[in-house]
Design a protein around this nucleic acid. Structure first.
Length: 842
RNA sequence: GCGGACGUGGCGAAAUGGUAGACGCAGCAGACUUAAAAUCUGCUAUCCAUCACUGGGUGUGCGGGUUCGAGUCCCGCCGUCCGCACCA
């Protein structure tokens, strides 16, 4: 055997085992299996073109879990698919003239190959792409189901309209008031939009968070804030022009501290007044123009426009309050109108000081009770109510109840709950999405497409040369007939927000009958997902929408699942150093070389500044494409690197040295596998030291992987490898080698299969049983204990495990170092922790 | 402003309140080699003392506290990152 034969050749091994897994359908999930089931899911990718390191990390983690659970005797569902609708495909169509479908499917083909090249244990038989009619057709059916259940409605609402691209923009796509692509000033337009009633489930979505113990605290908090429940009082201010202004307040206890009423610039009252008031019109225009960026809000001055109208205080008919239109009141929250209590709200105070309005203290901070409120800092802390008629002396909480009671008794207001969460507007004026299955009939209005006409498919012949919605412009597609009258009618040309596609894909993975979206009983076999892994960027929208769809589908009897994802893990990003030339331009890692301790540009030799380690991004040019790395080092080294060093929730800095280290470990395991010798003489159980390390490793790695502590498992496997290398040949060493190979199986599967075959293992290692730790072997019969004097380490002594306390104490006191440290002082107390330490207090 | 996370060697990081720095990377020294690659061995927080063996001090962002004992628990700061944000 030559030296090169002894090296592990990943290029050959990767291909060989991937083919074997595929041919024997190793990772096909059987819904009818009797084994306990585990559903391991990673967020499916958008087919943007190529796999990036973030995908590799995400899917490696899921893959280790999936393979680990299989080896532990579970029937595992570990599927993969494509979140295939969306804007980038249309952008490609506009820029390169390629059809969105063609572009998307090509990307899928490329990325599927790249994923297969990494040897992930996916059940490819369940692969799906949301852009195919056999997926989105079922989505249309679910949309109609929700519609029948009253969870869908249509309403005119204001949207961000890009006049150049002629399309609606999401809030995130409006940057400084301009469209992110066109750069055109965005207009507000009123359009008829379809909405899903997510607010029907607001209370339940909020309450459900409490049960998601295995979700990151951070994500739960973000969802909680997003749902944004506020309780308070909604009540009316009569206005001297005969109208009323309805306001919402979470602090009805401060009602006697009111000094003005303010409405948003878009409030109906403001709009009406502006009709014959040019100054107000201009003011309102200004309010709309100002951005909502963080910095602007901080510096933004509170400004108002005095309408001259007076509102009557609900508790005192003789008390009149000025009515303003104010720039800090939002139409989108509550009722779009507030009453200002300057003493106890910072914004109101800023406003009152500017317009010289009264500032009256109604909550005492303990010492100060006088009505005059000085200073520029509002008091919003605890206290009791003062200067407030019948509320005086009450706690804030009791006063709130008292005011709500009185309002309800007298009929001018009522206790209410206001949510930050709005209903989900799902209409998009785009081509590359799920067509909304509605026909607009001249006689019957919007009617559902009959079920037997689903799916409503997208037309293929489409024109992207002019901006706007291609479906709207298509010559024939939208023309159809009314299902009721048979008269000519028009199809809905809007498509669904792509977040709808990802709100139920995990159900279709678990069950994919032809005649319906999914089978309830088969879903019950797999759901909820045991472990969901993905980026934290989906903490709110995707995860909230998926939770909502699950509840909506349950409420109409299609499902029997409460929460789709029992446990959620948000992984960190893959990062890399950045390199910058003197002129500020960025360089990619392959354009620079290390020049001593400095870095230089290879082409020009100029000095290069090494910048912060940040998320890989095209603009900073610090991206490492996984494909050439996999070609060079093999799938296993890349996978091993993804799991090493950094804890999975933290960022992982990519480095050339790091991947080489992983490569070395792959080769090292291969060498170790070759050390196994079936004919070695000796009896099993003789090498106690090695067996101890082995069983400690098995116990530790099993626990670590179960908790997604991959970096810790990796460290323990290194230790075991070192112990095997130091051990003498023996049956025990063979056993340790076999176990090492089994334990790297989920992480470096190609290497493990190759080594397993070499060791004469039965079948595939993917199907082999995970090793069991024998704790009796794992425990040491000797322990090294620490000896401290007043908490400071003075010596360590090795004693038999389980040595009685008195003997430990005696041994510790016998230590020369300890005696020297005590120096003859009186021993006042001795703390003894069995098998751990002795602490002598003098 | 609100909420969350984090702060440990040159770097990534370990550490049920009980020997801080396991493991990896980088570095240094050595072995093998004509040489290189590969591989292997040893050292590698810091300061002081010592020819050396070794001994002692300091050390987990800063300041307090609880405890026989604190990286870990409590209080108060400082800093970094992330999310949300004129939410009434």
């Amino acid at each position: 055997m030559t030296d090169t034969d002894k090296r592990f050749n990943p290029l050959a091994a990767d291909r060989k085992w991937q083919q074997i897994w595929e041919e024997s359908e190793t990772f096909r999930a059987d819904s009818a299996s009797d084994k306990p089931k585990r559903y391991i899911l990673e967020m499916f990718p958008y087919p943007s073109g190529r796999i990036h390191m973030g995908h590799v990390r995400n899917y490696t983690m899921g893959d280790v879990l999936a393979r680990f659970e299989r080896m532990r005797g579970h029937e595992v569902l570990h599927p993969m698919g494509w979140d295939a609708f969306g804007m980038p495909a249309e952008n490609a169509a506009m820029e390169k003239g390629v059809h969105p479908g063609r572009w998307t499917r090509q990307n899928i083909a490329t990325m599927r190959d790249q994923l297969k090249r990494l040897g992930f244990a996916f059940d490819w038989s369940r692969e799906l792409a949301t852009c195919e009619p056999d997926y989105y057709g079922h989505e249309q059916a679910l949309f109609l189901d929700m519609m029948e259940a009253g969870l869908v409605y249509r309403k005119e609402s204001a949207v961000n309209w890009d006049p150049v691209d002629m399309t609606v923009l999401a809030n995130e796509q409006v940057i400084d008031g301009r469209g992110w692509r066109s750069g055109a000033l965005v207009e507000k337009r009123n359009l008829n939009q379809w909405f899903l009633k997510i607010t029907d489930f607001a209370e339940d979505l909020l309450a459900g968070l409490d049960d998601l113990k295995d979700w990151p605290e951070k994500v739960r908090t973000m969802q909680e804030n997003w749902i944004g429940k506020s309780q308070g009082l909604t009540f009316d201010f009569p206005i001297d022009n005969g109208e009323v202004i309805t306001v919402f307040s979470t602090r009805p206890d401060t009602i006697y501290g009111a000094s003005f009423v303010a409405v948003a610039a878009d409030h109906p009252l403001a709009l009406k007044l502006a009709e014959d008031n040019a100054a107000l019109t201009e003011f309102a225009e200004e309010c709309r123009r100002t951005g909502t960026a963080a910095a602007e809000i901080e510096t933004q001055e509170k400004r108002g426009f005095d309408t001259g109208l007076k509102a009557t205080h609900p508790l005192d008919p003789n008390w009149e309050l000025p009515v303003y239109v104010a720039n800090f009141v939002l139409m989108g929250y509550g009722t779009g109108a507030v009453f200002g209590v300057p003493a106890h709200d910072q914004r109101d105070l800023d406003f009152a000081r500017k317009y010289d309005l009264p500032v009256k203290r109604v909550v005492s901070d303990g010492d100060e009770t006088a009505p005059e409120f000085a200073g520029d800092e509002a008091y919003s802390g605890p206290g009791s109510i003062v200067n407030s008629d019948f509320l005086n002396g009450l706690s804030i909480e009791d006063a709130q109840k008292a005011v709500i009671d009185r309002a309800e008794t007298e009929g001018w207001g009522k206790g209410s709950t206001v949510w930050r969460l709005r209903d989900w507007g799902v209409s998009r004026q785009r081509y590359w999405g799920t067509p909304i299955p509605i026909i607009h009939s001249p006689d019957h209005g919007p009617v559902p497409v009959p079920r037997d006409q689903l799916p409503v498919t997208l037309p293929e012949d489409i024109d992207f040369d002019t901006p706007g919605n291609p479906l709207e412009r298509h010559p024939t597609w939208k023309h159809t007939t009314c299902p009721i009258s048979g008269k000519p009618a028009l199809r809905e040309t809007d498509t669904l927000d792509t977040f709808a596609d990802s709100s139920w894909y995990f159900l279709r993975f678990a069950s994919q009958p032809n005649d319906k979206p999914f089978d309830k009983d088969e879903i019950a076999q797999w759901l909820p997902v045991a472990q969901y892994i993905g980026g934290v960027e989906h903490a709110i929208l995707h995860l909230l929408y998926a939770r909502f769809w699950t509840r909506a589908l349950k409420s109409i009897g299609l499902l029997d699942v409460d929460e789709p994802f029992a446990s959620l893990f948000t992984q960190g990003m893959v990062t890399h150093e950045t390199y910058q030339m003197g002129d500020g331009s960025w360089l990619s890692p392959d354009e620079v070389r290390k020049d001593g301790s400095d870095w230089a540009h290879i082409e020009s030799g100029e000095a290069v500044e090494v910048g912060r380690v940040i998320k890989m991004s095209k603009s900073k040019k610090n991206v490492i494409d996984p494909e050439p790395i996999v070609d060079q080092y093999g799938a296993d080294a890349v996978r091993w690197f993804m799991l090493s060093d950094s804890p999975p929730e933290r960022d992982l800095p990519w480095s050339e040295a790091g991947i080489e280290g992983s490569w070395r470990f792959v080769q090292r395991v291969w060498r170790i596998a070759q050390m196994a010798d079936a004919d070695v003489p000796g009896e099993a159980g003789a090498d106690k030291a090695l067996l101890r390390v082995l069983h400690q490793t098995i116990a530790g790695v099993t626990e670590d992987i179960g908790q997604l502590g991959f970096n810790k498992a990796v460290a323990k496997l290194y230790t075991l490898a070192a112990a095997i290398e130091k051990a003498q040949p023996s049956p025990d060493r063979n056993e340790a080698i076999r176990s090492l190979v089994l334990m790297v199986g989920p992480m470096t599967p190609h290497l493990a299969e190759e080594a397993w075959a070499l060791l004469g293992g039965e079948g595939l290692i993917a199907d082999a049983a995970w090793p069991l730790a024998d704790m009796a072997v794992a425990v040491d019969d000797e322990v090294t204990i620490a000896v401290q004097v007043k908490g400071k380490l003075r010596d360590t002594i090795t004693v038999a495990k389980g040595l009685p306390k008195q003997e430990m104490e005696a041994l510790a006191l016998a230590s020369e170092k300890v005696q020297r440290s005590i120096g003859g002082a009186e021993v006042r107390k001795v703390i003894v922790v069995p098998d751990r330490l002795v602490n002598i207090v003098v």
